[in-house]
Computed example of a mutant assay.
Amino acid sequence: MQQVQGVIVRAKNEPVELVTVNVPDAGPGEAVVRIQACGVCHTDLHYVQGGIGDDYPYLLGHEAAGIVEQIGPDVTGLEVGDFVVLNWRAVCGECRACKRGEPWYCFATHNATQKMTLEDGTELSPALGIGAFIEKTLVAAGQCTKVDPTADPAAVGLLGCGIMAGAGAAINTAAVRRGESVAVIGCGGVGTAAIAGAKLAGATKIIAVDIDDRKLEQARQFGATDTVNSNNEDAVERVRELTDGNGADVVIDAVGRPETFEQAFYARDLAGRVVLVGVPTPDMQLTLPLLEIFGRGGSLKSSWYGDCLPERDFPLLTDLFLQGRFPLGDFVSERIAIDGINEAFEKMHRGDVLRSVVVLEGAAE
C-alpha cells in the first residue's frame, strides 16, 4: 500500500479537500498509475453537486494520463513504464454487445476490485471508476490505454472523457461524411470537440450555436464556419437559412435539455441525424409530435462516451494531434496545481475556460 495526496468531496456541495489517500498495491487485473495530468470536467462538478449519486466521499478526477507504476497478476498487454490515458470503458469482451462485435457499447465495463481509502479506512468512490485528482490511482488494467509517449499528458488526458465524447459524437455516432453540414448546439468543451471532430471528418458547413459570444468566437478557432447566438435569433430558422433552407445533415445537442433537443430535431434536414451527447438530468421530459418523428425520417441517437473504443480511438486521435491534424492541445486553457480545483470549478461555471488541467509531476509544459 502507498499513501498519496488526493482530492475528495465528503458530502453534497461541500468544498473539495486535498487529503491523504491509501492506495492498495495492484491486485489481479489491476494497475497503479502515477498521474501526470488530469482535466477538470463538468462531471466532477456534478459529483460535488450530487447530480450523479450520493456514494460519498468521492475521489474526484477522471480525464487523466500517466505512467503505469504497478501491474497485478493476470495482467497482459500492459507493462510498468507504459504511458497511458485512463478510460472509463474497460471493455469486458463477454457481454452481448461485445459478442456481437460492438464493444463500444459494452454493458459490463469493469473497475478496480479493491478500494482506495482515507487514513481512517473510509472507502472512497472514484469518479467514473477512476479517481485521478491524485498522485497515484488504482484502476482496472483495462482502463489503461497506451498512446504515444511523446504526447503532452495535459492534452491527451482530455481524451478520457469530454473531448472524446464530443469528437466521437461527430465521428462515430453521427458518422459525419465529407461534404455534409453539421450544426452543434452548445459550445463548451464537448460541443467544441464535436466541432473539431466534424471538421476532421470532412464536414464543409459547421454551424456553432450558443448563447455566449465568447464561446462562439472560440468555436470558429476549432472549425466552425458559421455561428448563431440563440439569445438573439431563432436558432432553427438560422440553421435552415445557412443550409439553403433545408436544415443540417447532422445536428449535435451538446447541452442535453428538452429545449435544445427540440431545436436539434427541427434544425435538421429530412432524413438527417440528431445526436444527443449532452447529459440530461433525471427529471427532464421531452414531448414531440409522433407524426413529425415519422415524417422527418432519419435518426435520433444518443452518444455514450462518443461511442468510442478507447484502444482504437485514443491512439488514433493522439497520433493526429502529434501530426498537427487534431487540435487537442488547444483545449487546455490553463495548467493548475492540485490545490486549485475549487477555483477551476468557478471558472468552468462562468464559462471562462474550455479545460483547466491539474498538472502533477512529469507533465510537459
Rank of each mutant, 00 (worst) to 15 (best):
G202P: 08
T225H: 12
G188C: 08
T204F: 03
S181Q: 04
A154H: 06
A235G: 14
N172P: 01
P153A: 14
G131W: 00
A170W: 04
G245R: 13
G157K: 01
S125V: 14
I252P: 01
V184A: 04
C144V: 11
D210H: 11
F222N: 07
V251N: 10
C144A: 08
A196T: 05
K136G: 02
P153Q: 08
G129C: 00
V147L: 04
E123W: 00
V236P: 05
Q218K: 15
R238I: 05
N246I: 14
N232D: 12
D213Y: 15
T192N: 06
I195R: 01
A140M: 02
N172Y: 00
L216P: 08
N246F: 11
A155S: 15
K146I: 12
E237T: 13
G247Q: 13
L158C: 13
S230N: 10
I171R: 15
V184E: 06
A208K: 15
E241H: 13
A201W: 04
A155F: 04
Q218T: 15
K199T: 14
V236F: 06
V147R: 02
K136R: 13
A196Y: 02
T243K: 06
G202Q: 13
R214T: 14
P126D: 05
G157M: 01
V228I: 15
M164G: 07
Q143T: 03
T173A: 09
V228G: 12
D226E: 15
E237Y: 10
N229E: 13
G197M: 09
A198P: 01
G197Q: 09
E135Y: 01
N229A: 13
L124D: 03
K215F: 07
T243C: 02
L124V: 09
R220G: 09
A127L: 02
G142P: 00
D234K: 06
V156I: 11
I211E: 02
K146Q: 12
E217T: 12
T225W: 08
V251E: 05
G245V: 13
G245M: 08
D152W: 01
T145I: 15
D234S: 10
C161E: 02
G245T: 09
V250M: 07
T227R: 05
D152E: 09
K215E: 05
D226T: 12
N229Y: 14
D226Y: 11
A193T: 07
P149A: 09
A198C: 07
L200P: 01
V251G: 07
C187W: 07
A132E: 04
M164I: 12
F222A: 09
R214G: 12
V239C: 12
T173S: 06
L242Q: 11
V251H: 08
C161N: 10
L128P: 00
T243L: 03
F133R: 04
I171D: 02
E237Q: 14
T225L: 08
L128T: 04
D249V: 06
K146W: 07
V228A: 11
I134R: 00
V251A: 11
T227E: 04
A141W: 05
E217S: 12
